[in-house]
Amino acid sequence: MAAATRALIIEVSTRLFQQKGYIGVGLNEILKACQISKGSLYHHFPGGKEELLIACLQTLNDAITQDAEAIFARNSGTLEALEDMIGKLTADFEAGGTLMGYTFSSMVSEMASLSDPVRHACGLLYARLQDVYARKLEGDGYRAEEAASLALLINAAIEGGMLLSLTQRSAEPLKRAAGTLSALLWRERGSGKPRRNP
């Protein structure tokens, strides 16, 4: 039962933090939405709201990374995997008008500069996603340094596309990010890249 309560607190809090931002959500709102007491919340998260935020980020980290790894594993190359992943994000956005399960930009922008533990938790998610992208690029024949640079660019383009889609209430920024990344990777293929690792 304790594990179920902890999971409920994380699930509800993640949704609230994504909708309203970390600062915009009070503990009382979390308690009411979860129908738990303050004592129960502090039993699971003795460090309070910041510890809860870090747990939410870690849960998002696991879910997003597992989803990305599954998509990249079922596609033969990076280009196909990116098209599949961004296609899924676009379809989810167009169906529901949100990307709640995939982006945590609102939490990062509020807290990453204020708290080292939160900044570290955010950094881990970006690093894990970049690793998924870089491994696939290396599998396509890019050298490790090139793969790492391209993975950073991919991460920035997708995260930026999601944020812009949310603010513009349109999937168009995600679609444009997909098109630009596809063109870049096709250009790399056409220019004789990727070069095989020595």
Rank of each mutant, 00 (worst) to 15 (best):
V108Q: 14
G97F: 00
D92M: 07
Q35I: 11
G139V: 01
E11G: 02
K88C: 10
E159L: 14
L125F: 07
L52R: 01
Y142D: 03
L150C: 04
L174F: 13
M1D: 14
E69Q: 15
T180E: 07
I154R: 06
M162Q: 08
A112N: 05
E172I: 12
K20Q: 12
G123E: 06
V108K: 07
N197A: 07
V12Y: 02
M85Q: 08
L99C: 02
G77E: 11
E80W: 01
P117H: 00
E29S: 13
S40G: 12
G161V: 11
L79W: 05
V12E: 02
G161R: 07
S109W: 10
F17Y: 04
A144Y: 02
E29K: 12
F93H: 05
D92C: 03
L52P: 00
A177C: 03
T5N: 05
G97Q: 02
L125P: 04
D62S: 14
T103Y: 08
G97M: 01
L31S: 05
D140N: 06
M1C: 06
T14M: 02
L125M: 10
R195K: 12
P194A: 03
M1Q: 12
L129I: 09
Y42V: 08
A81E: 03
A151I: 12
C56L: 00
R74I: 06
E69T: 11
P117N: 03
R143N: 08
N155C: 15
N197Q: 11
D116M: 09
T98L: 05
L57H: 00
I154A: 02
E145A: 12
T14K: 07
T65I: 12
M107S: 10
A121P: 07
K136S: 08
R189Y: 06
I36V: 15
A95D: 13
Q58M: 09
Y22R: 01
L184W: 03
M162C: 15
R74P: 00
N155D: 15
G97V: 01
L137K: 11
L124D: 11
R74A: 06
D116A: 09
G123N: 11
R169T: 13
A63E: 15
T5I: 08
L185N: 02
R195C: 13
G47T: 01
P194W: 03
K32M: 05
F45E: 03
L41I: 11
E110N: 07
